[in-house]
């Protein structure tokens, strides 16, 4: 279970996660702020809809993708929280209704370098 230690942050900002308001430390990454609130479910994968949360915290794994202020596919560990930020989970192919047929075609149908 994640918690915060040490002196509480001098300054804080208000953000919304999935419609719930929360006060978090200023200067934190979105990922750290949410983990500090005990939230580990950031997204569902596009292929099998599995639940995922941050893995590396340094911008290399892309497992922390969220929708921030309407912009999808943002790395929560690389974006700082800001006052009034609106954060949502990212579902699958950035498509609310994950279509299993779509998942099945995911391994086919794209070109490569």
């Amino acid at each position: 279970m994640f918690t915060k230690i040490g002196q509480t942050q001098e300054e804080s900002v208000r953000v919304w996660f999935e419609g719930c308001e929360m006060t978090v430390g200023k200067g934190l990454s979105v990922a750290a702020a949410l983990l500090g609130e005990g939230i580990t479910h950031f997204r569902n994968t596009p292929v099998t809809a599995a639940e995922r949360g941050p893995f590396c915290m340094m911008g290399v794994c892309f497992d922390c993708l969220l929708v921030i202020d309407g912009q999808a596919n943002l790395q929560a560990c690389m974006v700082e929280v800001s006052e009034g930020m609106c954060i949502e989970r990212q579902c699958g192919a950035a498509d609310p209704e994950l279509d299993p047929a779509l998942a099945a075609t995911a391994n086919r149908g794209e070109t490569t370098p």
Partner: peptide, 24 residues
């Protein structure tokens, strides 16, 4: 890949940058 699995480096980053830790 399960939620709640992270790297040790991630634990350090959370600690150094945000004073967020996982107990137990």
């Amino acid at each position: 890949t399960k939620r709640g699995v992270m790297t040790v480096g991630a634990a350090q980053i959370l600690l150094k940058e945000s004073s967020v830790v996982a107990s137990d």
